[in-house]
Design a binder for these strands. Structure first.
Lengths: 337, 337
DNA sequence: GCGACGACGTTATACGTAACACGCGAGGAG
DNA sequence: CTCCTCGCGTGTTACGTATAACGTCGTCGC
């Protein structure tokens, strides 16, 4: 048999139900109030069910100009965070008869011919997380609504912005460490040109600067890998006097710091407190478990999808900020001395 | 202005180039040899470039019945593995003017109305990794080609199968431990009803059974999380005499074993050797770094996409098996005594 | 010098759906 | 009795593309 078994069309359903194709479209589209009798509508639905009819999305999309599909652009598939974001977006989308396709941004894939090209025409909008602006430039002329996640609120490209309250998260980290008596703190920053990391750095600087006696003794940048984090941490731990705490932009970097500390003969949290960010599964796999900041990943995705639906509806949604929480665990303790 | 800035159609290009729409379609479709002069073809291409023309995929798909898009169904977005699989698939797809959309399987998302429904009509085929068969059942009547990854080779649903050589990986793990003198080995299995995990168990049993003096002293199952792995490991480490090595179906489970060992006062690898599987980023974040099996994730995705293209081309590709490698690290050492 | 053929284009059509613009009774108002 | 309205459906069209079927020249073989 042929691989493509031809599927029933709305015309087939119409024939089976003894009505016209137009009526089938009205009934199945849910807009039959006052146009088709309840009895007929029921007959149509039964016939459709019987035949296992599914509308041809290409045809619908061609006719309406809308694909009822959003694209979620993420910087990488790795880690649990964007899985959660996608889950949230997919949930809200499902509630509105919308689909979501996932697109890892180009740098994640090897060489990919402009990934938007292949899908742009079939899309209603894009939800993109903080990432290199270059990957988004090809969207500008597409005229597609764009919702940005975890990004500069006043971004001119974005139709809407949804942010977890990054600054507040970093302030909580700082307060937690200050409470424990830490005064000499180092910062291990993610060496990624993204708004969210710039904000993390600024919030930490401010929080420590506003506290009399506290000092940010050093900052190092590192790529988002355990190995790079470890290398940068080696430098931080070589400082004299050694900092009593290292604040990291990400859990992965914190894992690197823990390794470096152990190699340097420092115990965590006895000699050195370490904090992460994002609360990846990694955070509880390490020993000691990482003190970190939990972002509402599901809610970010869901709010992003809601914002996109609002934009498509002609509204102009305000920037949304979602609360975050500190997850205090075993990698932080009282400052030595 | 309206959110939907209307895009140029092939008719617009035709008008701009002073030819008919049909010629535009021929030229841009690359089938103009002997039908259109080189001069005219060039004119058309220039006009298209000028207007920034992109074909409407919905219309093309409606006309041809093919969407040039494959769907990759993965059990979860978490972890680095499926990111690699996707990257490989996307690379091969790009080389053939094909697109790939990613679909996390339903259990990953909350409650999602059959995810295939929303996309089925716009797809040419599906690539699915080992997962609950239930999620795939709705594909059966769709008549779509289905390529399975890391799954039962004789699966009747599958048009083709691509597997990393799981059994060989597990045999290498066993050989590595036997080389180090281990004889009393425990197995921490993933409590997931998937072919790949059944195969891992069987390969381990056989490898140990074939070696005189070696013994598989216990098996426990656990869900794929650090916490569950740790709980199951507690039971394994309570055995007397205690095993000298624990083989895990996954790196995440191995992380749980490491935590349990430390709490039980056992040093890794001094008192206990631990092995993982899959070589997730987690494996090198832990201390000691995990001995594990590296799967050719990129190649699995690429081979899957090639198989799908072959099926669409009318061929019947054979089952593909890809080689794996042992990554010996610090979590394994000579057996005590 | 005539038929045929090849190179170059065009006209016309179909894909499956959504929705506009009608038709057609029946019943109520004037 | 006539006209309007309203409930219930149907005929028809358009979306943008790919391609089969069909001209229309100029050229070449005989």
């Amino acid at each position: 048999m042929k691989p493509t078994a031809s599927r029933p069309t709305s015309r087939d359903v119409a024939r089976a139900a003894g009505v016209s194709q137009a009526s089938v479209s009205l009934v199945l589209g849910g807009k039959w109030r006052g146009r088709v009798s309840a009895r007929t509508a029921e007959t149509v639905r039964e016939a459709a069910q019987q035949l296992g009819y599914r509308p041809n999305l290409a045809a619908r999309s061609l006719r309406t100009g809308s694909a009822r599909t959003a694209m979620l652009v993420v910087p990488a598939l790795t880690g649990d965070f964007f899985a959660q974001v996608h889950a949230g977006a997919a949930r809200v989308a499902g509630e509105h008869d919308f689909g979501v396709v996932l697109y890892p941004s180009p740098e994640g894939i090897g060489r990919a011919p402009d990934p938007f090209d292949s899908a742009r025409a079939a899309l209603d909008g894009v939800i993109a997380s903080s990432m290199a602006a270059e990957a988004l430039s090809s969207l500008q002329d597409g005229g597609l609504p764009l919702v940005m996640l975890d990004s500069e609120p006043s971004d001119p490209m974005a139709s809407a912005v949804v942010n977890p309250d990054i600054a507040d998260g970093m302030r909580r980290v700082a307060a937690h460490l200050l409470d424990l008596g830490h005064r000499r703190v180092a910062h291990l920053a993610a060496d990624v040109p993204s708004w969210t990391f710039r904000l993390r750095a600024r919030a930490l600087h401010e929080a420590l600067g506003n506290f009399p006696g506290a000092e940010l003794v050093a900052t190092r940048g590192a790529a988002l890998s355990v190995q790079d984090g470890q290398r940068a941490a080696d430098e931080l731990l070589a400082l004299r006097p050694v900092p009593t705490a290292v604040v990291c932009d990400d859990d992965v970097l914190a894992a690197g710091v823990c390794k470096a500390a152990r190699r340097a003969g420092l115990s965590v949290p006895g000699d050195l407190s370490v904090t992460g960010f994002d609360d990846l599964p990694l955070a509880t796999a390490l020993e000691p478990e990482l003190t970190t900041v939990r972002l509402p990943a599901q809610e970010v995705g869901a709010a992003g999808m809601r914002a996109l639906l609002a934009v498509l509806d002609g509204q102009r949604p305000a920037t949304t900020t979602l609360p975050v929480a500190l997850a205090p665990r075993a990698s932080t303790g009282p400052a030595p001395h």
